[in-house]
Amino acid sequence: MNFHYSAAHLIGALVLLLGFQLLYQRRIAAVIRSFAVQAAALALAAAWQAYIQDSPHLYITAAIALVFKAMIVPFALNWLVVRLGIHKTVETALGIGPTMMIGVALVALSIVLVLPVTQNASALTRENLALAMSVVLLGLLMMITRRNAVSQVVGFMALENGLILAAVGVKGMPLVVEMSIAFSVLVAMILFGIFFYRIRERFDSLDLHYLESFRGER
């Protein structure tokens, strides 16, 4: 049991660490690759939970995470970047340093919040929930500190990763919930793809800054 707990904790922490890694990438391609690694770590976490909870349906979750989030989505994003000839650097709205510091603060906040609230739950669930919430908040942080539409989409996907991490850690979460999350991500991916095309067509850039000036607000 102790080993189960340590390993689950380790994998969860790995997902969180990769969430931080997403924050300091300066190139789009690196962002996408980090995301793929995070999704793979997530699949590992799901598979490990399937093993220790002895609930086979979580293997399906793991498979979905591995196939869709770690392979298809990054591939599609890469393809889009190449195809659309998107600017290869990440435009930040807030410097890397401050962003990292805020990220650390967010992790601290979620630990402060989650640990006392879930005193009745098992230690594994508590730690897992705190990690998952940190990942969600980091995803949200990424969405607001990056100008580029591709980074925002990756931030959104990272946020979803956090949700799934929370879902697999709780015993008895029905498969249908995880399936629907996975498919909603896919649908969102398709929508974003279309969205990229439209923006690109009109502004020759995916920097949302142009969109703002088009709306006459700057």
Binding site: A93, L109, S110, V112, L113, P116, V117, L140, L141, M143, I144, R147, Q152, L208, L211, E212, R215, E217
Partner: peptide, 28 residues
């Protein structure tokens, strides 16, 4: 109504943060 996408998100993020911090303070 006429904020940018990112600022809308920022607004949501800040609201979430305020709520979370309030919850944390109340718990303490």
């Amino acid at each position: 109504q006429s904020l940018t996408v990112r600022r809308h998100l920022l607004l949501m993020f800040l609201t979430l943060m305020v709520m979370l911090v309030l919850a944390a303070i109340r718990r303490m």
